[in-house]
Simulated scan of single mutants.
Amino acid sequence: MAKHQIYTMSVARVYPCYVTKAEKKGRTKIEVDEVIRWLTGYSQEEVEVQLEKQTDMETFFAEAPQLNPSRALIKGVVCGVRVEDFEESTMQEIRYLDKLIDELAKGKVMEKIFRHTN
């Protein structure tokens, strides 16, 4: 079975869409970067290197320094499917990021996006 197209798409191709979506709703590129760093454990410099290298989405998540354990608390629907119901782990990681960007664009405060419980 062939890989889903999103796996082979470069992060650099998807990233401007995330930024545009956030900025249209009054959020910033800095906040998008913060969300990506929170989810993946990449530093800002590492994110920028991944963008420059045109790293594909599958590799981006496979090589993430430390996927945030709190990502399991991310719930909701992306593309008509609940993120917690994706069985394939790479697709679930991609959809977690999609969901976080959606929440950012909807004006959710960063503390809620990052699943802080205090």
Rank of each mutant, 00 (worst) to 15 (best):
D98N: 15
E58Y: 08
E23S: 05
I101M: 11
M1P: 01
D56A: 02
R95V: 07
L67P: 03
K106E: 15
G107C: 07
K53Q: 09
L39F: 00
L67C: 06
F61H: 01
E23V: 04
Y96L: 12
E111A: 11
D98P: 09
Y96H: 14
S89C: 11
T8P: 07
V32M: 02
L39Y: 01
A22N: 04
H116D: 12
I74R: 01
W38M: 01
A12F: 08
I113V: 09
E58C: 06
Q50F: 05
E31S: 07
T117V: 13
E63K: 14
F60Y: 02
T40N: 00
E84L: 05
E23M: 11
L97T: 03
V11C: 05
M110A: 12
L73Y: 11
E111T: 14
I94L: 05
Y96A: 09
L67I: 08
E84W: 05
A12T: 01
Q66N: 12
Q92I: 05
V78D: 10
V81T: 14
T40K: 02
E63L: 08
Q44V: 06
A62S: 10
L51D: 00
A22H: 08
S89A: 14
E52L: 09
K106A: 15
K21C: 09
M57A: 07
H116L: 15
K24Y: 14
D56V: 01
D33M: 05
A105G: 11
V14M: 11
W38Q: 02
V14E: 08
S10C: 08
E48D: 13
E88K: 13
Q44M: 10
D56N: 15
K99V: 09
P65Q: 03
E84D: 15
